[in-house]
Write a protein that binds this DNA or RNA. Structure first.
Length: 311
DNA sequence: GTCCAGGTCGTCG
DNA sequence: CGACGACATGGA
């Protein structure tokens, strides 16, 4: 077991990380206010908060995705991102009431999560509630993942690893569909995407190139059945660390109408309007961090206005 | 019973 | 393009 200390210049709420894209991945994550545990790149990782700006990290390997654990975790928790970078002064001054409401969400992080996990979990997130999405991911991990009991000091944590691409690629659709809310189309799309990833048709390295323009990245992801604009943008934001990607779902659409008085956001969301709202968002937010900002607003909207409890 | 959930896709006007 | 239904289930 390796142990590292990481110092952070910005605060990070580890429980808040659960509100990130990993809101779905309930049984392959365990987190509380001062700790976070998961299996990342098939290695067990445990993070404990020592103070607001210091973490200790335990890992059973010295490298994750080929880079040192401290470097990886710093990137994973995106503790390099500062809230004043995410929201420019103009935004803060233009929406003072909203800014005050939003201040409770500043310690929430957008994680730089695993590409494959992100792709599959967001393919489960189509027009159904958070509860059902999490149920699907839970079943996927239990049926196709690996059970792992992790011991960190005195703390025992039971988790499932996320299924490997191959295990989903070879899955029988009738069995897999039990994990996808009985939706066979979704199950077939997931198996197909897993196959494409295994075979390199979905070229992870190519997609990870930060020079790749967002529209092109979106176009390539949308080549896969079951991935539309919204899910492609989620994969870019959470799975490729593209904080400029701005996924527009039913909640984002609602707050664009309510908080930013967008008339377009009141109409049904067609592909053409999606692109139009995407353009609008880039005039409201710092385009470089539009998605990061949008994610904070997403949770703020759900909790403060819609009174939805994610946990 | 009705409506809405972190949508996507095929079909039709 | 835009509207509409299918896909599926469960909580409010």
């Amino acid at each position: 077991m390796y142990r590292f200390i990481i110092k952070s210049c910005s605060t990070c709420d580890l429980h808040g990380t659960l509100f990130s894209g990993q809101s779905f991945m309930w049984n392959n994550i365990d987190a509380g206010y001062d700790y976070y545990a998961s299996i990342i790149d098939s290695s067990a990782v445990f993070i404990r908060k020592l103070s607001s700006h210091e973490f200790e990290v335990y890992s059973d390997s010295s490298m994750i995705y080929g880079i040192s654990v401290p470097s990886f975790i710093t990137s994973y928790l995106s503790i390099d991102i500062d809230i004043n970078k995410v929201f420019h002064d103009r935004f803060q001054k233009s929406y003072p009431e909203l800014w005050k409401l939003l201040s409770g969400y500043f310690s929430l992080r957008v994680l730089r999560q695993d590409f494959f996990e992100t792709m599959i979990t967001f393919m489960c997130a189509q027009g159904i509630g958070m509860h059902l999405i999490r149920k699907q991911v839970t079943m996927l991990c239990q049926m196709y993942g690996e059970k792992r009991a992790l011991l960190f000091g005195e703390k025992l944590i039971n988790l499932y690893s996320f299924p490997t691409p191959l295990s989903l690629a070879e899955a029988d659709i009738s069995i897999l569909s039990r994990c996808t809310n009985n939706n066979r189309i979704r199950a077939a799309n997931i198996a197909r995407a897993a196959r494409a990833f295994s075979e390199g048709v979905i070229d992870h390295e190519m997609l990870r190139n930060p020079q790749l323009p967002l529209p092109e990245l979106r176009r390539v992801l949308c080549l896969n059945p079951g991935i539309g604009y919204k899910i492609a943008d989620c994969i870019a934001l959470f799975g490729l660390g593209r904080f400029d990607a701005f996924p527009i779902d039913t909640h984002v659409k609602q707050y664009l109408a309510h908080w930013f008085r967008s008339p377009e956001a009141l109409k049904p969301l067609t592909p053409a309007r999606y692109l139009e709202l995407d353009r609008e968002a880039r005039t409201i937010f710092n385009p470089e961090f539009a998605g990061y900002a949008g994610h904070l607003l997403f949770h703020c909207w759900r909790r403060e206005i819609k009174k939805l409890r994610t946990f």
